[in-house]
């Protein structure tokens, strides 16, 4: 607990950008910072966070579907001793995008990666346990949190009023 003194979000960002110049940063609030990380540098950046912030808490990883085969991954770290929030943003593209797994550095990310894989179809390379986490087996490969996965809205027709406008469909293999 006494191995390092405090580090601020901007100092950490500067250290990371010095090592990986492709990373760019954007402040979010007081001692909260967002780093935009290219997908091939994610392991380097997460390792640097692990080394420089001694009490980094891996809060979560989750995906965002930006439609048209574009995805974003958000990594969130919290450090209690520095009151610092670090958010990494990784842009991914493709039908089944791939990224390196970071769960050997932070074991707490293992299940978040499993969930992102089954919900968005983002492959985490070298993940030790790529089974489904929440979904039943018959929903493998359906990726329910992608925007093109349409849910059953038929109940809205029963209300007797005009249903709200449906979300525009953007192709894909929806059922």
């Amino acid at each position: 607990m006494s191995e390092s003194t405090g580090i601020t979000a901007s100092t950490l960002a500067r250290q990371i950008i010095n090592r990986h110049p492709q990373v760019s940063s954007r402040p979010l609030g007081t001692n909260e910072i967002e780093l935009v990380v290219p997908s091939d540098k994610i392991r380097g950046v997460v390792t640097m966070i692990d080394e420089n912030v001694h009490d980094a808490l891996p809060e979560s990883i989750f995906g965002i579907d930006l439609e048209n085969d574009k995805y974003e991954l958000i990594y969130i770290f919290w450090s209690h001793s520095n009151r610092m929030l670090v958010q990494l943003r990784v842009s991914l593209e493709g039908e089944r995008p791939e990224i390196d797994s970071t769960c050997d550095i932070f074991p707490g990310f293992e299940w978040h990666e499993r969930e992102t894989r089954e919900m968005f179809g983002i492959e985490f390379k070298n993940h030790p346990d790529p089974r489904l986490l929440l979904l039943p087996d018959e929903l493998e490969g359906v990726f329910p949190l992608r925007k093109r996965f349409q849910t059953d809205q038929s109940r809205l027709d029963e209300t007797g009023i005009a249903p709200p406008k449906a979300r525009p469909k953007t192709g894909g293999d929806d059922e």
Partner: peptide, 17 residues
């Protein structure tokens, strides 16, 4: 006015005008 129907999160209300 059907505001109750629109507010219902689980579509439990049906209105017959």
């Amino acid at each position: 006015c059907a505001q109750c129907v629109r507010a219902c999160p689980v579509v439990a209300i049906r209105i017959d005008k």
